[in-house]
Amino acid sequence: MTPYTATGRPEVRWPAARRALADRPALTLGGILVLLLAATDAVSPGFVTPHQLSTTLLYAAPLGALAAGQTLAMLTGGIDLSVSATATAAAYLIAGLGARGTAQAVAVALALGLAVGMTNGVGIGVCRVQPLIMTLGMAGVLGGALTLASLTFTNGVPVVPDAVHQLGSGTVLGYLPLDTLVWAPLAIALLAGLARSGLGRAIYAVGDNPLACRLAGIRVWQVLLLTYVLGGVLSAIAGILLVGYTNAADLNLATPYLLQSVAAVVIGGTSILGGSGGYGGTILGALILTVLDSLLTILNVSQAGKQMLYGAIVLGLAWIYARAAPAE
């Protein structure tokens, strides 16, 4: 129960902090990012160098692409638990089909993302399956299919095409990672699309109040379908960047990124209940997580320890947002 004061208004703790998070997420998040960079530089002097910052961007791009799909799903009030499985599957297709030509491999990987997104979208939008269940089931199906497919790869050596490898790990002009050059236009398109397109308006609206959308004539299923299709394609792109970086596909390639994608979105200030937030916050969230990951690595924190921390961040922020949500 929300405690009520004598005036009948819900009591709000830390109103200033909450308003800062709610109204000016970019400032708050930018501040956190700078603090983290400073902390990392203090622990490991010489961290803030062009080379290290370049590496940070390189690491952040796949996460940024994966969290883009997650942002769209969460803005509609849903969630996409199949982003990492889709990315891994796309990575597998690149490695498996790489020998037949880069363009074909990339096209098939993107088509897979499209198909997964379409299935999710039909399940969630048309058949009204809970997003959590739909995408969890989808992740299970994809994971099983990958395990089967991986058996066939033992016969030949999977080859990641050189172009994809370059894309995922190379730089231009000295310090500018190539994968950032893929991420940046995507990010600009998403930022502009969410703020200034009819679909963007519809995505926020569906997340905020699906019933109001229906009464205003918006067919909610169409919005959800397109949202998850975009999410599937973005996940596939993330998988391509990721396999280019690692230069080899394995069954758990993108698995750690699932929790991180949710964490990036939630840190970025997108409401887990949908309807508010945006991709700008998610970009900062992805950068924060990437720097935090470096800091934790320097501090010798194990992968398990990192997982626990990311999980705790998601839970903590979810708690704060749930309390800040408008009372019924």
Binding site: R201, Y204, D208, N209, A216, I218, G275, S276, P326
Partner: peptide, 16 residues
């Protein structure tokens, strides 16, 4: 749409 602006609320049917 409780979390959205007046303008977005008014414009909602334009994007149906």
């Amino acid at each position: 749409l409780p979390q959205r602006s007046v303008r977005e609320n008014i414009a909602l049917p334009l994007y149906n």
